[in-house]
């Protein structure tokens, strides 16, 4: 197991072979059009106090009119828990 956080690991890119890429296929992520971003995008949201992470995802789907969405790590207890005794494990 590593002792340094993943964001401070330094990696070096090493080349094994060289080849040109064909620009008639694919598209660099930075040049994707808005329509494509709805399919391959991530929004970094600031979760407000109150609603569950799951509810925030549901609102995001509604706002952006997308059919499928998911979040990267629950920011409170189990969704089955009632409003009054909601724990905050922080992550998992």
């Amino acid at each position: 197991m590593r002792s340094t956080p993943p964001w401070s690991i330094v990696r070096e890119l090493r080349v094994k072979a060289e080849e040109d890429t064909d620009f008639s296929f694919g598209c660099p992520p930075s040049e994707r059009l808005l329509e494509t971003r709805f399919r391959f995008g991530i929004v970094n949201l600031d979760k407000p106090r109150g609603p569950t992470s799951h509810e925030v995802v549901a609102w995001t789907k509604k706002i952006l009119e997308v059919g499928r969405a998911g979040h990267g790590g629950t920011l409170e207890g189990h969704p089955r828990r009632s409003q009054s005794d909601r724990h905050s494990p922080g992550s998992s």
Binding site: K47, V57, L64, H71, G73
Partner: peptide, 10 residues
């Protein structure tokens, strides 16, 4: 509780 919640689409 609040903070960073990345939401991925489709």
């Amino acid at each position: 509780m609040t903070g960073i919640l990345p939401v991925a689409l489709d």
